[in-house]
Amino acid sequence: MLQTIQPRSGTAFTMKKGERLKVIDPEGEQVADLYAFNEHDKNEFISSGRSLDYNESIQFKKGSLLYSNQSNVMLEIIEDTVEDHDFLLTPCSVDTFKHFYPNEEPVPGCHGNLVAAFSEFDIPEHHVCTTFNTFMNVEVDAKGKISVLPPKSNAGDYTIFEAKMDLIVGLTACSAGESNNFRYKPIQFEILPAANI
């Protein structure tokens, strides 16, 4: 069943091994922060560092594997109409807004929204670390300068992740202006059954 995450909010849910998560950008240029835990061991969670290391790349697309802090594969990207995502930057937070947008009223951001969503699964705040920022367009120049640019995703673009273990997944419609070309839009998602092989 297709579900909608309202702008600047988030949710959490479970997935079984083999199920597929389709994350959709219904209006275009909207980031969705994704984070995941092993459903049976909440001390195992998605790891940016392990994933960057083992993929030997900062670019993620069809065929890329997302690893846990215990070096196990949690998710595989099996379809991707954008093939432009970020796994370097932390989820936006109250502190992010104070730092980058000092003249705006801070909001919980993706970090706060994920913490609230994961609280239903008794997951503590300090376990929510660097997210897989689906559709986020981050460029790193030759001197190492990081730039956040408008997402390349168009209306209806999507990425499909296959669960490689039973998971608790958090997903947001990102709250940061620069990440979403200063428009806040919904994200849609659907959990698809395991493929018949």
Rank of each mutant, 00 (worst) to 15 (best):
A32S: 15
A155M: 04
Q59F: 13
E79N: 13
M165H: 06
C110Y: 02
V94Y: 09
S9L: 06
I187M: 04
I24A: 03
D25W: 03
P91A: 05
H127I: 00
L192E: 08
E190A: 10
S147Y: 12
N38E: 15
T131C: 12
M165C: 13
F161P: 06
V128H: 02
Q3M: 14
H127N: 06
G177P: 04
Y184I: 13
I58Y: 09
E39D: 12
I191L: 05
S9A: 14
Q3Y: 13
K61Y: 14
F161A: 08
Q188P: 01
I58K: 05
D53F: 10
I187A: 02
T11S: 03
K16C: 10
N113G: 02
Q70F: 12
T134F: 00
E120C: 07
N72W: 08
T130N: 09
V107K: 11
L167F: 03
N196M: 10
N137G: 04
G63P: 07
V115S: 00
D41R: 06
T134W: 02
N196W: 07
S48N: 08
D141G: 06
H85E: 04
C92H: 02
I160N: 03
D80P: 09
L149H: 07
Y184F: 15
D166I: 10
C174F: 00
S64V: 10
A195F: 05
E178T: 15
C129Q: 12
T81C: 06
S64P: 12
K42P: 02
T96G: 04
F135T: 05
T134I: 15
A36T: 15
Y184M: 15
F135R: 07
N72Q: 15
A163P: 10
S9D: 14
I58C: 09
F121D: 07
R50C: 10
S119P: 01
P124S: 08
F45E: 07
S48V: 01
Q6C: 05
D80G: 09
G177D: 07
E120L: 11
N38M: 05
K16P: 08
N180S: 05
S147P: 06
S47L: 09
D86R: 00
K143D: 15
